[in-house]
Amino acid sequence: MSRVLVVGSLNADLVVRTERFPGPGETVAGEDLTVGPGGKGANQAVAAARLGAGAGVGVGVGMVGAIGDDDHGRTVRDAVAAAGADVDRVAVRTGAATGTAVITVDARGRQHHRRLARANAALEPGDLPPSTTSRC
C-alpha cells in the first residue's frame, strides 16, 4: 500500500513561448513549443517520489487518476512511473483523450493556462482504492 496517495489530474502540457500575449483577435507568433507530461496530480506524485516519500516501505507514492488511451496518456503515465510512483490506479479511458493544458509563456515569464479536463473528468469513485473510499 502507498504511504502517499495522490488523486489528481494527469495532462499533456503544450507550452508555447512568445514575446508577448496577444490582444483580443490578434495573432502573435510563437517562438518555441514543447510538449511534455504535466497535471497538478502527476506533478505532485513525481515530486513526492523524487523526494523519497515512503522510501524503503514498499511502494511509497501512488497515483490515482484517469488518462485517455492515446500517446499523451502513455507519456504522462510513463513519466510518473519513471519517477518512482505506482501508476497501477491510473485508469485508461477508451474513447476519451488525455487531459491537456495549453500554456503560453511570455518573455517576462508570465503564464496563461488553458486546461481541457478530458479523461480527468472521467475519474470515478471505483478508481480509488477501497480503503480510501470507505473513509470519504
Rank of each mutant, 00 (worst) to 15 (best):
L14G: 04
A96C: 12
T18M: 11
M1T: 14
A29K: 10
D70C: 07
S134M: 08
D86W: 01
P125T: 01
V61E: 06
T132Q: 13
S134P: 02
R110S: 13
I67R: 13
R77Q: 13
R93A: 12
G38N: 02
G95M: 08
T18C: 14
S9Y: 05
V92M: 00
R89L: 04
V4W: 02
M63N: 08
V7I: 13
G60L: 03
C136Y: 11
G126K: 05
R17V: 05
G95L: 02
T98C: 08
A107W: 01
L123S: 03
A12Q: 15
L5P: 05
T34D: 11
V61Y: 09
C136L: 15
R135Q: 13
P22L: 00
R114E: 11
R93K: 03
S9M: 02
V92H: 06
T100V: 15
V46L: 10
V57S: 15
G68I: 05
G68Y: 00
A107R: 10
V90T: 09
G30C: 10
G58M: 05
V35D: 00
G68Q: 07
V102N: 09
S2Y: 12
D32I: 03
L51K: 03
V87S: 03
V102T: 13
I67M: 08
G39E: 01
G38E: 03
V92G: 04
L123K: 13
L128T: 00
A47C: 14
A119D: 05
G30N: 02
G58W: 09
M63V: 10
A66D: 07
V80H: 04
G99Q: 03
G25Q: 11
R118Q: 12
D78L: 04
R114F: 14
D78K: 11
G68F: 03
E19C: 11
A66H: 02
G36D: 06
V64R: 06
H72A: 15
G36M: 01
H112V: 15
V46E: 10
V61R: 03
V64M: 07
D106F: 12
Q111F: 06
D13S: 03
A42Q: 06
V80N: 00
A96S: 12
L128Q: 06
D13V: 08
I103Q: 04
V6S: 02
V16G: 01
P37M: 08
A85R: 10
V64W: 04
T94F: 14
E124C: 09
K40V: 12
V46F: 11
Q111E: 09
T34E: 12
L116E: 11
H113C: 11
Q111V: 02
A79D: 12
L128D: 01
V90K: 08
A117Y: 11
D78G: 14
T18H: 07
A81S: 10
